[in-house]
Amino acid sequence: MAETKMNVQLIAHTQVSRSFLDTFVPFGSETHGQAVALTAIRTCYSPNKPSEIVAKEGEKYFGSKASDGGAGTDADRLFRHIFASKHTSTLEHISFTFAIEGVSRALLAQLTRHRVGFSFSVQSQRYVRMGSADRSGGFDYVVPEKVTSDKTAVECADYDLTAEDIFDDAMKYAQESYDLLREAGVPAEDARAVLPNAAATNLVMTANLTALLSFYSKRKPGKGAQKEITELAEALRREVVDVEPWTAQFFEEV
C-alpha cells in the first residue's frame, strides 16, 4: 500500500492506412489526423469520392496559406470554420487511446459520466486482489491536494492530528479491514466494499477528438471541477496536442 501519482500516456491515435497514404504525397507538415479530418469534412461538400479527396484537393488545402488571413494552411482555415460552425461530427473520426494510471476511484466515477465517444477498460477490484500479502502489495491510494495542504491540527484523544494524519490512518485502517475480511474467508469481490474512494485504479480509455474537446470544456481548470480531474484534463490535452498540434486552438476555445 502506498500513495501514488497520476500518469497519463498516449498509447495510440488515428493513423491513415498504407493503401490510403500511397494515394497522395504529403504536402508538408500535415498530420494523419488532418488528412482524416479533411477527408471527412470535404466528403460532406465535395463531388469527389472520400478516397480521392486528399489526392485531388490536398494541394488546395495543405499547399496554400489560409485564405482567411489566419495562421497555417487553408486546411487550418477549414478546420477553424468547421469548429466555429459546430460541425464537429466530422472530427469524431479521429481517436486517441490513453493509458491512465494512478487515479482515484472518485475520479473514475466522475470520468465515466462522460459516455458519448468514450470507451473504458478499468482495472477490476473484483479480480485484482488488494491484500497486503497479494501480488498488488495492497491498494495504492491518491491523496487530495487539500488534505496535504491543510496543516490545521485537531485534537483526538491525547494527540493533535493534521488532515494528512487522519487520512493516512484511514487508509491503513481500510487496508487492515480488507486483509482481515480476506483472512476470514470473504472473497475479494465482497471485501472490496471497504476500500475507499481514494483507492487508486488504472484504465485504458479511448475517445474521439470531439468527445475530448467536450470533456475538456467541462473539466478544465477554472470550471469548478475537482483538482484531480482537472489535472487529467490537462494531461489528456497535452498528449493530444503533442501528436496533433493543430488541435491546440480548439482546446483553447472550448
Rank of each mutant, 00 (worst) to 15 (best):
F139L: 07
H114F: 13
P47R: 05
E234I: 15
L232M: 08
K223A: 07
V142R: 02
S132I: 01
T230G: 13
D242R: 15
T73V: 09
A199R: 00
D169I: 13
A211V: 09
K172V: 09
E234F: 11
D160Y: 07
L111Y: 05
H13C: 14
E145F: 07
S121R: 08
M205H: 06
K86N: 14
K5Q: 13
V243A: 13
V54H: 01
Q123T: 11
Q226W: 13
A40H: 10
T43N: 03
A71C: 09
S67N: 04
T152D: 09
F139E: 02
A106Y: 03
G222K: 10
G58C: 11
I41G: 00
I94H: 00
A233I: 08
L195W: 09
D68A: 06
F62R: 01
V194Y: 05
R105D: 13
Q110C: 04
G33M: 09
V122R: 00
V241D: 12
E189S: 07
F251K: 03
D168T: 06
E189I: 08
N208H: 07
P245L: 05
K151H: 14
T230R: 11
L107Y: 11
K5D: 11
A174I: 03
A71N: 13
V54L: 09
I11N: 12
R115Q: 13
V147P: 01
L195F: 14
K220H: 10
E253W: 12
R105P: 12
T90D: 03
S19K: 09
V128P: 01
S121P: 04
L180Q: 13
S29C: 05
A71G: 14
S64I: 04
Y216H: 15
A106G: 08
Q226A: 15
D134R: 02
G33V: 06
S19R: 04
G117Y: 04
V8I: 15
T201W: 09
K227Q: 14
G70T: 14
R237V: 13
Y178T: 02
R126N: 06
E244I: 10
F118K: 07
I94S: 00
G70C: 09
L212R: 01
G137S: 04
